[in-house]
Every structure is written in structure tokens, then in C-alpha cells.
Amino acid sequence: MLFRTGPFLTRLESSLPMLSDTLDLLYGQRPVEAEDQLIDFHIQVRRRPGLRGRLRPQAVFSTDMDTPFYPFPLDQAYPLFEWGLNYCIAMQSHQYLMLHSAVLEKNGRVLLLPAPPGSGKSTLCAALSYRGWRLLSDEFGLLRPDSGLIDPLPRPIPLKNRSIDVFKAFEPSAVVGPTYPGTRKGDVAHVHPGEEALRRWREAARPAWVVFPRFDPDETTRLHDFAKGRAFLKLSGNAFNYPLQGRRGFHAVDRIIRECSTWYLPFRNLDEAVAVLDELAARSLSDDGGS
């Protein structure tokens, strides 16, 4: 199976139906590419062979000659594939400064949501993607250091534990894949990235806002100014390959911080957070005279 995710072309070899069924559901009308192209990642997800594999069915992820993870239970083949693809991108895509951030776009401007695990970043990202924001990525801000543009990498958004039901209640019509209970990251389910995001994968855009979100049920949902210097440190510290990029990475982050407004957003529910970010986008549009 050959398919495209943003700028990357992946060849996936697998005969596991539980993987291909979920891929069909979550990547939907993914573009099927011709065979004569350069392939970025060669991935295999296979059932573990031998006696042990028969006694305890497991899935093994491998890429080229590398098998970076211990086998997963066979019924977790899909999350294994998604984490494995993350691994391939993080290890090989150093043409980009890879920001650890959710990335969405509205009116041609990019919102960066860099945040550590547990902050509600993915849940908020999924919510925004179903409220008029185009998903560029839930995990990787693929920044071209020289132009300052971010390339889309639209893929299913992984939700964990309680956030799965929170999101389903927020958007009952959303396409959500199966829930995988008891993975190494808890219960996991993936949200479809949206047809528009998949269709517009070539459309890069420029960052306008850096917002550090944090779910906190006891806080009022509102934007707070976030000092530029602190934002620089947090954004560069959250990048997967910042030290490797050297001065190029430093100047790329510096440019983002100079060109974007920087905010901290505690939020107690998704509706309020979406409303606040919609207002931020609308305010910027009106500041520009509606251009």
C-alpha cells in the first residue's frame, strides 16, 4: 500500500485486516500515488511469527532494517503503526524544524498549539478542526526554516482516556476510529483529520499565533499575554530537532516569535476555548481591515 501523508510518501506492507480497515476509515479518500516515486518511509507491520506469536498474538513494526519498538498486542496494530510513523518522521525529516505542536489554519494564518502531554492539546486541536479550522497537524509543526512556512501533515488525531468521550460529546458527528484500551499510553482512539485537511495537504501557511494551552477545570478560559522570551524557550525546547538544526533553527524560532502574538490559554471546556480562539482569529482579520 502506497499513500501520502502531507509531504511524505509511505509504503506500508501489512496483511493485518485490523490495520487496513482502520486506515480506510481514518485516512478515507487518501491519494493513491503512482509506484514510480521516491518513497520516504518503508514500513512493515506484521504479525509476530513463530510459537510465541501463536501463543500470544502480537504485531511487530519495522522500517527498513530497524525494529524500534517491542511488539504490541495484535489488536493494537493501528496505534503501533501511527506511533511508528511518528518515529520515522521524527528521525528522518530534518529538512524541517519539527515543532512539537498542534497546527491549525484559519483565513490563511497558522495557529501553533505547543504543549506537553496531558495539557489537552490534541483534544482542543480535534475540536478546532471540527469548528472551521483546517488541521495541518496534531503533532508535528513542519516548519521550513528558510521561508518560515509550515507544511501540512494531516493525519488522524489521537485522543487518550477521558478526552475520547469528552470529544465525542462535543462533536457527535465526528468520525472516530475504534478505541484501543490499555495501550502503553492508556486508552487511545483516533479522530479523522477531515476531508478538507486531506485535500489541501499542499497548502503551506505562515504562523500568526503561538498559544500555549492547558486544560484546567478550575480556571477561567481566557487568553493571557505570554512573554516573548519565555515563548522562545518553550517553543525551541519543544522542537524535536532544534539542536540539530543549529543556527538555522535558532533563527527560525526567533522569526516565529517576532512575527506571532504569543499567548497562554488555560481552558475549562472545549466550547469556551474554541470561542476564544475564534475571536483571536477574527480580531486579527479585522486589524488587517478584513484582508
Binding site: A227, K228, G229, F232, L233, S236, Y242, P243, L244, G246, R247, F250, H251, D254, I257
Partner: peptide
């Protein structure tokens, strides 16, 4: 000559390519 620097609010951020570290 190899250092890169930027400044916000009286804090300087200096990148040292030899170490890969950014110093405040």
C-alpha cells in the same frame, strides 16, 4: 562569530552552535 543572539525584555538568548545550547 558563530554565536547567534536575540533579545526580548532585557533578556538575551544566545545560541552556541558548538554545543547546540541556547543560553539565557
Amino acid at each position: 562569530k558563530a554565536f547567534s543572539r536575540t533579545c526580548w525584555n532585557d533578556e538575551y538568548f544566545l545560541f552556541n552552535p558548538a554545543s547546540g545550547y541556547t543560553h539565557v
